[in-house]
């Protein structure tokens, strides 16, 4: 069971990407995919929207899985392993989660379940690169998310201006030269085959 997180700041398009990616990974039912969605803000809007797509989804509320409810996350992963045995678990943390900590929490579930860690995929919203990095307190958080990423996808490539996408790529490359960086669009499908293959091929620590 491979656990891959789809992280990134609030509003960067995580849920939309998750829905399309899970569908592509599932390959028409050949592969079992489960989703774990963590939201702040008390009510699970994303979880409910995903549920309507017919995917197996576990919603974690009451805090952030990178800190407050990390142990709930580990227990949720274990219960998915026990009850559903998916090949892939895609995790959508809150938009303010720290990817490295989410990975640590996921690794904790490996004490009881046979898991391998997938990459930390971090979405960077190409429609507002300057805004994201310039935000007072949140700019530091976005920088942390980018630095923690194994793969950075420049999201919303179908609607972003070319200049903004180029700026986004340049900024994130400066912050994280080791990550693979490419553009995606959850609407046109741009970059999805690439992302899917990266997840399938990923070997943590390799």
């Amino acid at each position: 069971m491979k656990i891959t997180q789809i992280a990134g700041f609030l509003g960067c398009g995580k849920t939309t990407l998750l829905l399309r990616l899970s569908d592509e990974l599932a390959e028409g039912g050949k592969t079992k995919v489960a989703l774990v969605v963590n939201e702040i803000g008390e009510i699970p809007v994303d979880g409910k929207v995903i549920e309507e797509s017919g995917m197996r989804v576990k919603d974690i509320g009451g805090g952030c899985i990178c800190c407050e409810v990390a142990s709930t996350f580990a227990k949720t992963v274990y219960s998915l392993y026990k009850d559903f045995s998916p090949d892939h678990v895609l995790v959508e943390p809150t938009g303010v989660a720290v990817p490295k900590q989410v990975k640590q929490a996921a690794a904790m579930s490996g004490r009881d379940a046979d898991i391998v860690l997938g990459p930390a995929v971090v979405l960077f919203d190409a429609t507002r690169p300057a805004e994201l990095l310039d935000m007072d307190m949140l700019g530091r958080l976005v920088v942390t998310q980018v630095k923690d990423a194994d793969i950075i996808t420049i999201s919303k490539a179908d609607i972003a201006e070319e200049a903004d996408m180029a700026m986004a790529e340049e900024k994130v490359r400066e912050l994280n030269p080791r990550a693979e960086i490419f553009r995606v669009s959850s609407f046109t499908g741009l970059g999805f085959e690439h992302l899917k293959q990266d997840i399938l091929d990923w070997k943590e620590g390799a």
Binding site: I40, G41, I43, G62, E68, V69, S71, V96, M108, L138
Partner: peptide
């Protein structure tokens, strides 16, 4: 790795992020 409890002081609080939900 225990949960921090129900005090609502996760990473989002540190970053000055607040959430609110309502159903109508």
């Amino acid at each position: 790795m225990d949960d921090a409890g129900e005090n609502g002081h996760g990473c989002y609080t540190e970053h000055g992020v607040s959430g609110y939900g309502v159903a109508i």
